[in-house]
Every structure is written in structure tokens, then in C-alpha cells.
């Protein structure tokens, strides 16, 4: 029996007067990898960003409907957005490490949570880096600038940085889109390992990648959720014609 971690009900999102998400209702299960696929501009990244309220930063965005995480409506006016984002971490498309050392990048999250004890920090940093499968590559240069790492390493560092805050959900916005095949496969492996402990929602352009890493797949098209099901089903026997067209490469 799967438990539902994230659930949206009749969710609409507008950029100014332009509708970006139209009546999205979806239930994302816990400790599984859910992939969001669809052609660019279909609203999948927007949807992802609204799960930890990153869209709040954009003035013109208006959201209607309900988004539940663990049964709590995160758009309720009493919600503490800062704590919400600790619970729902995010990895961005472009790796964006701070211009600090590798250690400080990972320690950033714990530090803002008030952990300043050096031993404690070292421990958190080490575990996070290990969990992000990058420890072996950086353990000798923890205090070098994070900007000196390769693109793939930077992205895994960003994942480690997210893990250090100990979230329950990790949102990934095309985490491997700018990486070479080897780095991509490392990230995919990593996602596989992480799903035991975290609920992962990943946006991807790459349908093979979605097929490889995800348990569930949602297909978005022009702001609408067309189909959501087990990945296997979507890829072998989709219900909707549009999904089939997209997966077989007939458009998008």
C-alpha cells in the first residue's frame, strides 16, 4: 500500500493573465521517483516550483486550488514557507553552488538552522557528501572553492547541499540537462539510491531518462496534466493518444 506524499486538487496557476497550469490534480506517492515529462513550456517546471512555493518569488504568479503535503495545505495562510522549504528541497537545472568552499556549501543549510558546532557540521557534511556519491572525489579538497568542480560534480554537490538540510521531498528540475553522459548516469544512479529515504519529483526532457529512473510518470501538455500512471504503463500502454504520440516521438 503506497502512501500519498504530495497531492494537488484542481490547481490553477497564472502568470499575470496567462494561464500556465490548468486544473492539475495529482497524487504523488511517498519514497518513489516521479518523473514529469512533456514538451518545453508545458508547465512541468512551473508545477515543480509551486510544490515548495518558489513561485512566490515571482510577483505576477497567482495560484488557485490546493496543494497538500502530508495532508497539509501548503498554500494555507498560516504556513511557514521557510520551514516548508526545509522540508521540500530543490535541485535546479543549472548547478548553482555558492562562491564558497565545498565544505561551506554543504554546511550552509545546517548553519542557517543554527548548527554551529564544528564536529556536528563536519559529520553532516561528510554524510551528505557520501549520500550524494561525491565524497570520494572531494574529500581531499573540502576547503577549495566549489566553483572549481566540474559541472557534474557541482550538480552532485548541490544535491548534497540539499540533503544536508534533511528534507523529506527533493524536487529536481532537469538536474542532468547540462551534463555529459557519464555525469548524467552518475546522477541517475544517485537518484536510484536516494529514493529509499526521500520522495523525489524530477522534471526531465529526456524520455529515456524518465523511463530509467522513475517509478511513476506524469505527462504534461500545455499546462494540463494529460496522464499520470506507473512509468511502465505510460511507456508501454498509455491511455491517451497524446501521451503515446509524445512518447513515440511524433511531436515535442
Amino acid at each position: 500500500m503506497k502512501t500519498i506524499k504530495i497531492q494537488t486538487e484542481n490547481m490553477y496557476l497564472h502568470y499575470g493573465s496567462k494561464m500556465a497550469l490548468n486544473n492539475i490534480s495529482i497524487s504523488i506517492p511517498e519514497n518513489k521517483v516521479t518523473a514529469l515529462i512533456g514538451p518545453s513550456g508545458c508547465g512541468k517546471s512551473t508545477f515543480l516550483r509551486s510544490l515548495n512555493r518558489m513561485n512566490d518569488l515571482i510577483d505576477s504568479v497567482k495560484i488557485e486550488g490546493n496543494v497538500f503535503i502530508d495532508g497539509i495545505n501548503i498554500y494555507d495562510k498560516n504556513i511557514d514557507v521557510v520551514n516548508l522549504r526545509k522540508k521540500v528541497g530543490m535541485v535546479f537545472q543549472k548547478s548553482n553552488p555558492f562562491a564558497k568552499s565545498i565544505f561551506e556549501n554543504v554546511a550552509y543549510g545546517p548553519r542557517i538552522n543554527g548548527i554551529n558546532n564544528k564536529n556536528e557540521l563536519t559529520e553532516i557534511v561528510e554524510t551528505s557528501l557520501q549520500n550524494a556519491a561525491i565524497w570520494d572525489e572531494v574529500k581531499d579538497r573540502l576547503y577549495d572553492s566549489a566553483l572549481g568542480l566540474s559541472g557534474g560534480q557541482q550538480q552532485r554537490l548541490c544535491i548534497a547541499r540539499t540533503l544536508a538540510v534533511n528534507p523529506e521531498i527533493i524536487l529536481m528540475d532537469e538536474p542532468a540537462s547540462a551534463l555529459d553522459p557519464i555525469s548524467t548516469s552518475k546522477i541517475e544512479e544517485l537518484i536510484h539510491e536516494l529514493k529509499d529515504k526521500y520522495t523525489i519529483v524530477i522534471v526531465t526532457h529526456n524520455m529515456q531518462q524518465a523511463a530509467r529512473v522513475s517509478d511513476y510518470t506524469a505527462f504534461f501538455y500545455i499546462g494540463e496534466l494529460i496522464e499520470f500512471d506507473k512509468t511502465k504503463k505510460i511507456y508501454t500502454n498509455p491511455d491517451k493518444k497524446q501521451t503515446e504520440d509524445y512518447i513515440t516521438g511524433r511531436f515535442g
Binding site: V82, G89, F92, K94, N96, Y108, G109, I112, T162
Partner: peptide, 27 residues
């Protein structure tokens, strides 16, 4: 200072002021 860095900090659960103090200001 790129918007991505501000977003990264906020996504880690930093408050606006923490983001300004630790990411925006040093830059």
C-alpha cells in the same frame, strides 16, 4: 548576483534576511 543563487539559498530553507546576509551581501 544571479537569481539562481538567491533561489538556491531560499530553497535550502534560508530566510530572506539570511539569504541577503550570507549570499547577496558577500557578492
Amino acid at each position: 548576483i544571479p537569481r539562481e543563487l538567491r533561489e538556491a539559498s531560499l530553497a535550502l530553507g534560508a530566510t530572506k534576511w539570511q539569504t541577503i546576509r550570507k549570499v547577496v551581501f558577500p557578492g
